[in-house]
Design a protein around this nucleic acid. Structure first.
Lengths: 106, 106
DNA sequence: ACTTTTGTGGACGATATTTGTCCATACCGC
DNA sequence: GCGGTATGGACAAATATCGTCCACAAAAGT
């Protein structure tokens, strides 16, 4: 379960690593950015989705690209959904084709 | 906007084609499978997501594989989400990696 | 051993989103 | 016009998600 900077992980795990590297407790970070401690903990455990607003605050605090963070969150959601529905992996490939299809035909 | 059997399309469009090929009006199909006409129309226009139950009825009626239909619906949702959020296409590729990651690490 | 700090997680009301239904409308072919 | 068709708005009902509070257990610090 160890994680280096290049390995893939969920947004929550990423956030936790970030926080720990900064030596911050949940409570203090919570105070800094104005998000309830418990909620923050849940986000780190991927039990809650961060809102755009929260994402913005986090990006700002850790000096990260907001757009990039959003991508991580979204891909998390897709991944969880696939697992939850026990769907085939290539559902994602189909989705990709559909995006192109929709962009061209609408 | 013409569509042959091999081209990709959304679930709704697929459903509409199926219905028209069977020479059924919305009302009659609606009656057959017990789904409100307006709702069915919305599903065909991808304005509503079919529930599992509705999917099952449709699969049964048109003698299609339910699992396959579910995949089409799910990939639709992903595609629409990508477009809506103006997210990068490779968000889907990242999601793919995450699915593998999650399956291996949990 | 006592106190403080830390993360977890249940409970629950508040919000937001989605669904299903009804009805009015417009369109077309006859 | 009439009968059949698809569309889409409005809205209550059902679901899902969110944010907050609080209590708890485990670890760290003294």
């Amino acid at each position: 379960m160890a994680m280096n900077k290049n390995s893939i992980s969920t947004f929550g795990e990423r956030l936790r690593t970030l926080r720990e590297e900064s030596q911050l407790s949940l409570r203090t970070l919570s105070g800094e950015i104005g998000i309830d401690t418990s909620l923050l903990a849940k986000i780190e455990r991927n039990e809650r989705q961060p809102t755009k607003e929260q994402l913005k605050q986090l990006a700002k605090y850790f000096k990260l690209d907001e757009k990039q963070l959003a991508k991580e969150v979204l891909s998390d959601q897709f991944a969880y959904r696939i697992i939850e529905e026990e769907a085939d992996l290539d559902t994602l490939k189909v989705a990709e084709k559909k995006v192109e299809y929709l962009k061209n035909h609408k």
